[in-house]
Design a binder for these strands. Structure first.
Length: 524
RNA sequence: GCGCCUGUAGCUCAGUUGGAUAGAGCAUCGGACUUCUAAUCCGAGGGUCGGGGGUUCGAAUCCCUCCAGGCGCGCCA
């Protein structure tokens, strides 16, 4: 493949082409000769500073500063949508994430999926997709029943009634809290109802309470969902049955040992899977197929799901089911997020339900705040288990990348405040940007000019962590500039130009942080 | 046993649709404030890219094989 790319190393220009290397074998000529021939015969347009040959056969293009000034001017015009693709592609994309069971507290892994999914949705929106984010509520089935029974048992115990706690019940203290809240609101009025009625009432009531708490936490994390989809609806509306009927018509079902099976092994799965158990109850998988069929019916062309690594074994069967429903093969894209390991400095905090040492997402947020949490959750590729150092996230030093980036923003605001006090305002339209010729200035502008490409690639490759990398590069470049170049000086022309540059940098930092759902403080 | 992910500097990680001398942060060592925020900046050292084989002008990247770690392999969700 012949490509134009951004060279990694310094001293190779702004763009480079490997065309001579690719042509060498076809033309039976050494790549150097081809490259030299091209360089000698190419016409140089005005925005190119130079075109050079470099061994073993690369052709390097160096852009003139004009495009840097143009990029800066563009940022001044477009402000928060700089680098965005504003013309909608019209393609409907759905991102589903977190979807935590509403029967217990969220763990820190959920925080990671929340930050990833929410940021991915924002990025996709920025590059022109019509995006909807969604949370699937598993408010049906066995676990709900066990959950309800656990609450009933605690309710009775709290009222002094001897009650046996379900063998596989939920042990956590939050169950007792829920029971106490019910008592606080309604006293003992449910005590004399038939056992099954109690379970039914408590299940619905308690899960809504957990769900509300979960929504509250996600909102505090600045995570937004466009839609909340209930599993109960799939069962009660008959949509699940309809889905199974469709699969039957298409010939993908068979009966064996009293159960109803789906032939997923025909489409890449290791083995076939049960949809309806011998006892007549549908499996979780059956409901999930119905759910995804509903997504298709709503017109989404691309479905992105973020799942924890503990669910990766589920991927093939789900994709097989999508194909059976008639969706194009690449419709369902599943991002598998590796788990989170919490550290306090060097000491790993072992998470264990058994020993009870367990840090919930809520506790983590309370400890370090939403900004730091989101930043750390986004910092690594989803493929890598995340080592999350709580002490580092809390520290107010430059070792802490979120503080480092936010500090750059606050520092610029401080300059702008000082300028304003002297009645000087940044004005990107009037300032003569061509006065910006020092290396730190050019370096800063180069990073700003790269943003549209970075954003597009980060969205296409589903890599939110590239935003943290970009933010850090931008902040570093600014701090270097700050050290080397004084913004407010006696030279009013240069002051105007530099004020435009730092104000642009400020907007850029704010834009990136905002895509990550993180605040940009004006003072620190 | 099978499947997915991972293995890159002392530590945490980028780079993996083949490209140039393998990068960054932290840590270590050495420097820089009479200044718009030192919550900052500059410099240095540090590597058999898990091991071995192969493919080619060129491999951290692709293929084969072995080793190590995480996770998963239910008519649970």
């Amino acid at each position: 493949m012949i490509e134009l790319e951004k060279p990694k190393g310094k001293g190779h220009g702004d763009w480079s082409s490997n065309i001579a290397l690719k042509l060498a074998s076809k033309l039976h000529q050494p790549p150097q000769a081809i490259a030299e021939f091209i360089v000698e015969n190419i016409e140089q347009p005005g925005y190119l500073d130079k075109v050079e040959f470099a061994p073993p056969g690369f052709i390097n293009f160096t852009l003139s500063n004009v495009w840097l000034y143009e990029s800066l001017a563009k940022l001044c015009r477009e402000r928060e949508v700089f680098g965005h693709i504003r013309k909608s592609s019209g393609e409907k994309v759905q991102v589903e994430f977190v979807s935590a069971n509403p029967v217990g507290p969220m763990h820190v892994g959920h925080g990671r999926w929340a930050a990833l999914g929410d940021t991915l949705a924002r990025m996709l929106r920025a590059v022109g997709y019509e995006v909807s984010s969604e949370f699937y509520i598993n408010d049906f089935g066995n676990q709900m029943n066990i959950f309800g029974r656990s609450v009933v048992a605690r309710y009775q115990q709290c009222l002094g009634v001897e009650a046996e706690f379900p063998a596989n019940g939920y042990q956590g203290n939050y169950i007792i809290e829920i029971a106490k809240e019910i008592i606080a609101a309604d006293g003992n009025k449910y005590l004399d109802l038939p056992a099954e009625t109690q379970v039914e009432i408590f299940t619905q009531r308690a899960y809504k309470q957990v769900l509300n708490n979960l929504k509250h936490i996600l909102t505090a994390m600045n995570v937004h969902f466009d839609n909340w989809f209930s599993e109960q609806w799939l069962h009660r509306s008959g949509y699940l049955k309809e889905t199974i009927a469709e699969l039957k018509v298409k010939g993908h079902l068979y009966e064996k040992e009293g159960a109803l099976w789906l032939k997923t092994s025909n489409f890449g799965d290791d083995k076939d899977r049960v949809l309806i158990r011998a006892n007549g109850e549908p499996t979780y998988f059956a409901a999930d197929i119905a759910y995804h069929r509903h997504k298709l019916e709503r017109g989404y062309k691309k479905l992105i799901n973020i799942w924890g690594a503990d669910h990766h074994g589920y991927v093939k069967r789900m994709q097989a089911a999508m194909v059976m429903l008639g969706a194009p093969e690449d419709t369902l894209e599943i991002i598998i997020g590796q788990l989170v390991n919490l550290f306090s400095g060097n000491r790993q905090i072992r998470m264990s339900k058994r020993t009870g040492e367990m840090v919930t997402l809520e506790e983590l947020l309370k400890e370090i705040g939403s900004d730091a949490a989101r930043y750390f959750f986004l910092m690594r590729s989803p493929d890598t288990p995340l080592d999350f150092d709580i002490e580092l996230a809390k520290s107010q030093t430059s070792d802490n990348p979120v503080y480092y980036v936010q500090y750059a923003h606050a520092r610029i605001c401080s300059i702008l405040r000082k300028a304003a006090a002297q009645e000087v305002k940044p004005d990107g339209f009037k300032a003569n940007l061509e006065l910006l010729t020092a290396d730190p200035e050019l370096a800063l502008m180069r990073i700003i000019a790269e943003w549209p490409l970075i954003l597009k690639q980060a969205a296409e490759r589903r890599c939110p962590y590239r935003l943290t990398q970009y933010a850090e590069n931008l902040a570093t470049s600014f701090h270097f500039f700050y050290h080397e170049c004084r913004v407010i000086s006696d030279d009013s022309q240069l002051t105007a130009a530099r004020l435009s540059l730092v104000d642009s940098t400020r907007m850029m930092l704010k834009n990136v942080l905002s895509l990550m759902g993180i605040g940009a403080p004006e003072k620190m």
